[in-house]
Design a protein around this nucleic acid. Structure first.
Length: 820
RNA sequence: GGACCGUUAGUCUAGUUGGCUAGGACGUCGCCUUCACACGGCGAAGAUCACCGGUUCAAAUCCGGUACGGUCCACCA
């Protein structure tokens, strides 16, 4: 035991331990150790988008607590870290910051610009993760843009193709005209917007009558293939199966019926265009209507648009509305609130295009996904509904091809002669078919010798939805199943429908096994005002600044204790400051205890006779241990943190430490045995509190451990000390009740002093405690010295007579009379 | 429109198998410069636990309904 400095300096101690832990290699997963059970964390590979934000802080704190807790419990913990590099986000930022367009430059050059930006962002985020004290095994670090990761992603594509899960097809897909790529449903956001509903006359063919249809997208009139009405709509019965002439382009289309048509919206007559929205897609399939390709990849009208060809959609809209007005076909317009699909990266209005794409068959996995979602553990449980509901709501297979540059290539070629699809062999990957041909000479079908490499690349989620297998060592380690399925998969409420879902379908399809056995959900970080945290709302807190100012252990307490797991958590600086003050309290209490234990050796305290309050706090500590362990097991970090802090501060410091001071200072009065018992208890309790708090605040607990317990306990770090098991033989309800009685009496007398505006240190002349029965009197007697010495009482009497006056303690069988 | 979550003191929040005399933090007020800590201690005020009904000896907690807020999903062309 060494003496401790007066103040706790987090800015010196936290970095010190962060580097020492790395040197000690205590975070390594030990492949050679087969005795300890494995515990694997499916760490999310974050999208490098700049500096670490408070949302990351929340997530990384959650699963770092799990990692540290499990390590102390003796598990062989795998805590890897990767980076999800590819994607539109980076491409858009590179275009903006360099003022370039990716189509106007060599793809390789653009790719390297992307990689440079990603590396810059990774460095920023990594710094933040390190400063938070995350116990990551950095030897596992990977990037999805690395060739080795490409190999994994491409290999999984090949294997899924072989299993019949990957296919090429021509179907309508969501399309972002700005980014010129297909996107999946999960990448479409919906925003509320004011639109204009146009009431347009559609003349009945060979008649003077006309149908009035209402549409918010008149620009799609050239692609109108039908008009639909509700079969129950009496207004339109006579038009059904008749032909209508589409205005401006004079094409004849049928009037069809569909029960889905809302008779009360607009005019109850709807134009079906290919494709104005997803509903059109359904109608076209259902009624086998023809498809007119009105727009091309960048949102311009095609030849099919006649005189409007080569206009952008919004230009065509203006022209068409003008023409309709001139022709007297536009009856009126009105404003409506509508919700439109936009690209989640660039917020451009999403169109629907029919183009040949690669798909993964996911629809037939929905039931399996649902069953597995029900079988695994969710923290909190109700979050499973998010995945199940999403799975049930899907109606298209997953489109996995993208028309982009910064992504994993699809390892496929096409024979120039016969069009045969050549899928890469497993040992060809990683490979970029844009740069290299297939490793065969002749087309296996026609013998042709020329091939076109696939230009499309994979959806970023194709990279990140195999993390569970890759983390475990697939495809290179034969024993990767030791770590698969992952023990825990952390996910935010916002990415359940993407990451959790895609992980499920990919692994189920590839390995016929679910990827993880439990899911830990974090909510979103809100600003102090309860709204979503964002720079534009001015409620943004910068994580690096917060960490630098308050230290990781304080910020981690906010993350762990700021609210229930899974719920959104506002960022409150008061919570962080409270955490800081708690650390200060813990430090002071520890350095005080350290002083009181200077002459103490645990060996000397064998069979020491414990006093009531010693047994009392020992019993309470065992109960605390039980409760905290259970809370950590259930990922209820907020409950664990609150229990540990309240106990440490208010039970341990305010009562126990105060009560034993006199026994420690004056052995001549209380006896050496009593002093030793207090030291024994103090030594034991503080160690337990440090251990319980170590997963939440690893730095301060380590520092104190090193000063006070290293020699005695022998673990090089408290982080690998054995997690305490609650010792039920020390739990005694009677002892706790008796101790509580003493504490209550102490409190009452303190209260009396406070009301009389006395200093707590001021001596009291007489205190008489009236007990209602002998049993109570006996208990009070056991704690009498603690009461007397803590409160400086000169004459203390325990009486069995009924009191006439004095303080009556509610719910207890005593009352107190005090003279000062 | 559907699903899920929430509604607890001035503010934020805990309360997960019903036993609560509703816990904590911030803020407010009063007292205490007590030999670990004023980044402290002791205390006070402040809550009809959204509302209505039900089950129960007992409900913040379980059930049904209503209102308001949030999130996700689906939508009106």
């Amino acid at each position: 035991m060494r003496s401790m400095p007066k103040d706790y300096k987090f800015d010196e101690i936290e970095p010190k331990w962060q580097s020492k832990w790395a040197e000690m290699k205590i975070y390594h997963y030990d492949w050679n150790n087969k005795n300890r059970e494995s515990f694997s964390i499916d760490t999310p590979p974050p999208y490098p988008s700049g500096e670490l934000h408070m949302g990351n802080v929340l997530n990384w704190t959650y699963f770092d607590i799990v990692a540290r807790f499990k390590r102390m419990q003796g598990y062989n913990v795998l805590f890897p870290q990767g980076w999800d590099c590819h994607g539109l986000g980076i491409e858009i930022q590179v275009e903006k910051s360099n003022n370039v367009r990716k189509r106007d430059m060599p793809p390789d050059q653009f790719r390297s610009m992307c990689m440079a930006l990603v590396e810059k962002y990774i460095a920023m985020m990594k710094e933040g993760i390190l400063k938070l004290g995350s116990s990551i095994d950095w030897t596992t670090e990977y990037r999805t843009m690395d060739s080795n990761y490409w190999r994994c992603t491409q290999l999984s594509f090949i294997q899924l193709y072989q299993k019949g899960y990957m296919y090429q097809g021509t179907h309508p897909v969501n399309w972002c005209p700005r980014d010129e790529t297909a996107i999946a449903d999960a990448e479409v956001d919906h925003i509320k917007k004011e639109g204009t509903l146009h009431y347009i006359k559609f003349p009945l063919t060979n008649s003077n009558e006309h149908l009035l249809i209402a549409t918010s997208r008149p620009e799609f009139i050239p692609a109108c293939v039908a008009i639909k009405v509700n079969p129950k709509d009496n207004r339109y019965g006579k038009y059904v199966n008749k032909k209508i002439t589409v205005p401006l382009i004079n094409r004849e289309v049928p009037v069809i019926t569909d029960e889905a048509v809302d008779m009360n919206f607009g005019t109850g007559a709807v134009q079906i265009c290919t494709y104005g929205d997803k509903d059109d897609v359904k109608t076209v399939i259902k009624h086998k209507l023809p498809v007119i390709r009105l727009i091309n990849e960048n949102g311009k009208i095609t030849e099919a648009g006649g005189k409007y060809a080569s206009l952008y959609l919004n230009q065509a809209r203006v022209a068409i509305v003008a023409d309709l007005t001139n022709a007297g076909m536009l009856e009126k317009t009105e404003k409506i609130q509508q919700e439109v699909g936009v690209c989640d990266r660039c917020k451009t209005h999403v169109e629907i295009l029919e183009r040949t794409q690669w798909f993964m068959k996911t629809m037939n996995l929905s039931e399996t996904v649902e069953r597995n979602a029900n079988e695994i553990l969710w923290y909190p449980d109700y979050m499973k509904n998010r995945l199940i509901d999403w799975t049930k709501s899907l109606d298209w297979d997953w489109v996995i091809s993208r028309q982009r540059l910064f992504a994993t290539p699809i390892p496929v070629w096409y024979c120039k002669t016969c069009g045969e699809v050549i899928i890469a062999k497993s040992d060809w990957v990683p490979i970029d078919p844009k740069l290299e041909g297939p490793k065969i000479v002749d087309c296996p079908k026609c013998g042709g010798k020329d091939f076109n490499g696939e230009q499309d690349v994979m959806d970023t989620w194709m990279d990140s939805s195999i993390t569970c297998a890759v983390h475990a060592g697939w495809p290179d380690r034969s024993d990767w199943k030791r770590l698969f399925p992952a023990s825990i998969h952390p996910s935010g409420t916002d990415i359940i429908r993407t990451w959790a879902y895609y992980l499920m379908v990919r692994h189920l399809a590839l390995f016929d096994e679910r990827p993880f056995n439990s899911v830990l959900i974090n909510g979103m970080v809100l600003g102090a005002d309860g709204r979503k945290m964002s720079k534009s709302l001015k409620n943004y807190a910068a994580a690096p600044e917060t960490l630098a100012k308050n230290g990781a252990d304080a910020v981690r307490q906010w993350a762990a204790g700021g609210g229930a797991t899974g719920s959104d958590i506002p960022y409150r600086i008061q919570d962080v400051e409270y955490g800081k003050r708690f650390l200060n309290k813990l430090w002071n209490a520890s350095s005080f205890a350290n002083k009181l234990l200077e002459d103490y050796t645990p060996q000397s305290a064998n069979n020491v006779e414990l006093q009531l309050l010693d047994k009392w706090i020992l019993s309470k500590t065992e109960n605390l241990t039980k409760k905290v362990t259970e809370s950590f097991e259930k990922c209820q970090f907020n409950i664990a943190v609150e229990d540990i802090r309240n106990f440490t501060w208010h039970v341990f410091c305010d009562y126990y430490l105060e009560a034993i001071k006199d026994r420690l200072y004056r052995p001549e009065l209380h006896g050496k045995e009593s002093r030793l018992a207090a030291q024994y208890t103090l030594h034991k309790i503080l160690y337990r509190l440090l251990q319980l708090f170590a997963p939440v605040a690893p730095h301060i607990t380590e520092e104190i451990y090193q000063y006070m317990y290293l020699d005695n306990k022998g673990y090089p770090s408290i982080q690998i000390s054995e997690w305490p098991k609650s010792n039920s033989t020390l739990i005694n309800e009677d002892t706790e009740k008796q101790g509580d009685l003493i504490i209550t009496i102490l409190g009452e007398i303190r209260n009396d002093k406070a009301q009389k505006k006395m200093s707590l240190n001021a001596p009291i002349k007489n205190v008489t405690v009236y007990a209602e029965n002998e049993e109570t009197a006996k208990i009070i007697k056991k704690g009498a010295t603690d009461i007397i010495s803590t409160l400086k009482i000169e004459n203390f009497t325990i009486s069995l007579d009924k009191p006439v006056q004095g303080r009556k303690i509610p719910f207890l069988e005593v009352s107190i009379q005090i003279d000062h």
